[in-house]
């Protein structure tokens, strides 16, 4: 039981954060809130990968001459770290485009609340 708890508690927290982020994306009506939810979701996914990468009693993935490289159990898996670096960059890029879109929308319609936005789009005369 202790072993199971110790081996899985990280996952429960990560899943809680993921659900929080997903909640922000699907339930919240303000577009900025949706983006905040998106950020939280992405960070939670990164945490998921990293928690599966860890090893107890292991050191960071930089070759230490005192340990050598024969035993893989002494270093934390480096592959997920590399993948998640990429994922962070992708997250920033997505947010950058989203910010640009938010600014354009606010300039044109004067609101970021989804319901109001739909209302104002209906009243907009530009029929295309």
């Amino acid at each position: 039981m202790t072993k199971f708890l110790l081996g899985h508690y990280g996952y429960w927290f990560v899943f809680l954060l993921m659900t929080l982020g997903f909640y922000g994306m699907v339930v919240k009506k303000n577009l900025v809130k949706k983006l905040i939810g998106m950020n939280i979701f992405q960070v939670a996914i990164i945490m998921f990968y990293l928690s599966s990468a860890g090893k107890w009693k292991a050191t960071i993935p930089i070759v230490d001459p005192a340990i050598g490289t024969a035993g893989t159990a002494r270093y934390i898996d480096p592959l997920q770290h590399c993948l998640m670096l990429t994922a962070i960059v992708v997250g920033v890029a997505t947010s950058g485009v989203a910010y640009a879109l938010l600014i354009t929308i606010y300039k044109r319609f004067g609101t970021l609340h989804e319901d109001e936005l739909i209302e104002r789009m209906k009243n907009d005369l530009d029929m295309e």
Partner: peptide, 13 residues
């Protein structure tokens, strides 16, 4: 690349 483009995004915003 990262320096140039992040600064450019800030300026564009």
């Amino acid at each position: 690349a990262v320096m140039g483009i992040l600064t450019a995004i800030y300026d564009d915003l």
